[in-house]
Design a protein around this nucleic acid. Sequence first.
DNA 1: CTTGAACCTATAACTACTAGAGAGTTTATA
DNA 2: TATAAACTCTCTAGTAGTTATAGGTTCAAG
Lengths: 136, 136
Amino acid sequence: MYSIGELSKRTGVKIPTIRYYEEMGLIDAPERSEGNQRRYTKDGLSRLSFIRHSRDLGFSIEDIKDLLSLSQHPEKPCHDAHNIAVQHLADVQKRISKLKRLERELKRLSKCGAGNIANCAVIETLADHGLCETEH
Amino acid sequence: MYSIGELSKRTGVKIPTIRYYEEMGLIDAPERSEGNQRRYTKDGLSRLSFIRHSRDLGFSIEDIKDLLSLSQHPEKPCHDAHNIAVQHLADVQKRISKLKRLERELKRLSKCGAGNIANCAVIETLADHGLCETEH
DNA sequence: CTTGAACCTATAACTACTAGAGAGTTTATA
DNA sequence: TATAAACTCTCTAGTAGTTATAGGTTCAAG
């Protein structure tokens, strides 16, 4: 049996976040001690690790709910889990290419040689989208 | 003079968002019509464009406040604007490399050949961080 | 003058947490 | 066994940057 603090240390998930996950229905409400404190089993620990790990990989709470309920049914086909991962991969790739465009723009922008605001490329570029090299 | 709806169409910023920016002090409260509706000038339009453009580039509301007040003082040196942009560039580059690690992991993860959940690499990997190739 | 679109304020929801107050519980040590 | 330190409890509110909703008012065209 782990207290919430121990669970937190073992998984790296902060205490209020664990309680938040409980409220959101990601983890079951655990048993309580006589004094009403949460007491977790090994199962609770591994479920929270799963969540932690999924969050690290950027899955949303909703996605994780789906993944968790899938993982509860080992006999089912895994298209669904697969689809969630592939969809998420697509999202990540979209974000990467958007950020790369942004990086190019900011690099250009930060090469400002002017001495004062009046001729500063940063301000000028922000004021006028037409000066941009790429669309965003 | 533009109504809020016209301003919204011209800048691509949604109406509630414009009102939110006003509340946050990013834009000045504009004059009102006799019936208490907002009426914007060309200045209001270009200020909002500046904001829109800065948000597109991922600057925070606070950064934009600084950039706006800098742009109001053309005689000042532009180190500050420059610093904000450079700092932001560093953030963006950090985000990119984090996402790329994630992309690698997800690509590996989504190549799941199993037929059912029991052997599905997606679920398995999420359940056990030890199976990951990279740190995250 | 009427109608319908656009506008007003105020409030709540969203995501995924984090922080704080004030009270109760558990555990380690004297 | 007493007490103090550390931990946990619930509840509320705050974060960023919007978006949505409700119930009412105003504007512009026909």
